[in-house]
Design a protein around this nucleic acid. Structure first.
Length: 476
RNA sequence: GGUCCCUUCGUCUAGUGGUUAGGACAUCAGGUUCUCAUCCUGAAAACACGGGUUCGACUCCCGUAGGGAUCACCA
């Protein structure tokens, strides 16, 4: 066997990619990079009926988002459908016919279905090989070609699952080439993996039951099998089935458009079913390349918990340099921010950075910095302390505040904080009363960054205006 | 139903015969002169069950239960 590491991601272009497929791709990429080898993208489009327009580009884009750039098959996409034209599968099929390990299937799908129904009625497992025709016709276009299996026991080693023991009853005659002339996945992937010198076949759990069949075919073909690695599925939030699109699994690119970082997705996906045995919770891509190993991948499925994803993203956002973060959030500002310059927006961003969990939250967290918010009476009426005060008392506090702030020469956070502290003494009020009142007057928001910093960024004029507005509101 | 795989806090997990069963997310409480968030401290929270093996089982074996995958001319 070649010692070169070559892995592949082999999706079918039938729709968008979700976290399950993405994680499988990530694992394959990590194994390739770790071994100094290649990562290959191969589009499994032998089922022309299920092909979805644009799905292929979508897959490439998803991979690129996480930096999983295929070493082959990116620009010159490797598509099975094109390899069909080259006659590769045909050649291998003919070899199998010659060696007596493949035969034309004379039955229609309906007839096969009847056999299957009969077996079910008899409560017996259905095996096609029990219905092998005695004298199969010559194989010709329009007839499916079946593999002639030689059932036996196997102990199949899987890099994730360990040794899997199976009996001969799971080995059967399966279709190699369909009536439409296209090879099935079961046949095509083995030919392709061999042809492309794939060293590790890393794929989802749905293929584990087919492994004995593949072993049998590898033997018939005289090919040394690659290393198998079967990755368990990511489960839905209820934990009762594999994550699927029907079940609300999101398009990977949705996370990008909501403002999740690629490093978040990479770390999150890798640690969903894998860990390095230490207490490290978050990994950079470089760390993963160094530390990842298939034998520490969990054997059972893990639930997809978006709250952990959110936490991971918040972590990366907080760690980021302001200027870098500023570039990344470019498309996420509220529309009203357009009129403001970079400097102002950067200041706002620095205040909301530690509160931001994903970029799409930015408008909600920052809108009052860019537009005058409407006065929201509920904020005071529902405030646990402020609701106990008369409007006239609140009005008086604000007027005192206004005068005090008016007198600040250099409207900076430390000077403002000093003034605010003096106001506490002056009015004899608790911070929770006075500061809450000012904060509401100025932001009209249930939450905001620190008061002094917020006032500074907003500027003296704006603060004066908004406090005045609140005072006026008390008079009505 | 057959076959294969799996089973530690609500969730993701550490753990490979002797541990006060550890961490993280989430939750709750306290602290950081206002809110939210961050940060810090703390709390609650788990070995599915039943048999063995053993001086001793979360760890090994068997069974039961539960969960998942698969049984296409789909991948």
């Amino acid at each position: 066997m070649s010692s070169k590491v070559r892995t592949r991601f082999a999706p079918s272009p039938t729709g968008f990619l979700h976290v399950g497929g993405m994680r499988t791709a990530l694992f394959a990429w990590l194994v390739a990079k770790q071994g100094g080898g290649q990562f290959i993208l191969r589009i499994e489009d032998t089922d022309q009926k299920r092909k979805v327009e644009g799905a292929e580009e979508h897959i490439v884009e998803c991979l690129a988002w996480l930096g999983l750039i295929p070493d082959e098959g990116n620009k010159e996409r490797i598509r099975q459908s094109e390899r069909v034209k080259n006659g590769i599968y045909q050649n291998w099929a003919e070899k199998l016919i010659e060696s007596g390990r493949a035969y034309a299937d004379p039955y229609s799908p309906e007839q096969v279905q009847e056999f299957r129904a009969q077996a079910q009625a008899d409560k017996k497992p259905f095996l096609y090989r029990n219905h092998r025709p005695d004298n199969p016709p010559q194989w010709e276009p329009g007839l499916p070609l079946r593999f002639k299996s030689e059932p036996k026991e196997y102990v199949t080693h899987d890099a994730v699952m360990g040794d899997i023991k199976t009996g001969p009853e799971v080995v059967d005659d399966f279709i190699l080439i369909k009536a439409d002339g296209f090879p099935t996945y079961n046949f095509a992937h083995i030919v392709d993996d061999t042809d492309m010198e794939i060293s590790h076949v890393i794929r989802g759990q749905e293929f584990i039951a087919s492994l004995p069949n593949y072993r049998n075919l590898y033997e018939a073909l005289g090919i040394e099998p690659p290393i198998f690695a079967t990755v368990p599925h990511i489960m839905n939030e209820q934990g009762n089935k594999k994550l699927s699109k029907r079940d609300g699994a999101k398009d990977i690119l949705d996370y990008r458009s909501e403002g999740y970082l690629p490093e978040t997705m990479t770390s999150f996906l890798a640690t969903l079913g894998w860990n390095d045995g230490t207490e490290q919770e978050i990994f950079t891509v470089d760390e993963l390349v160094k530390k990842f190993s298939l034998d520490r991948v969990q054997k059972s499925g893990a639930r997809f918990d978006e709250r952990r994803l959110l936490w991971t993203n918040g972590h990366f956002i907080r760690e980021m340099e302001l200027s870098e973060l500023y570039k990344k959030v470019a498309g996420f500002w509220p529309k009203t921010a357009d009129k403001y310059d970079d400097d102002y927006k950067k200041k706002v961003l620095s205040l909301v950075q530690e509160r931001l969990k994903y970029f799409a939250e930015l408008p909600e967290l920052s809108s009052f910095f860019f537009e005058e918010p409407p006065v929201d009476k509920n904020l005071i009426e529902n405030h646990k302390k402020l609701k106990q005060y008369d409007k006239s008392q609140l009005k008086e506090m604000l007027e005192t505040t206004k005068t005090k702030l008016e007198g600040i020469r250099n409207f900076k956070a430390d000077a403002i904080q000093k003034a605010l502290n003096e106001l506490l003494e002056q009015t004899g009020e608790k911070p929770i009363v006075l500061f809450s009142l000012i904060r509401i007057a100025v932001t009209q928001a249930p939450a905001s960054p620190g008061l002094a910093e917020t006032l500074e960024v907003l500027s003296k004029d704006v603060c004066m205006h908004r406090i005045h507005r609140q005072i006026a509101d008390f008079q009505v």
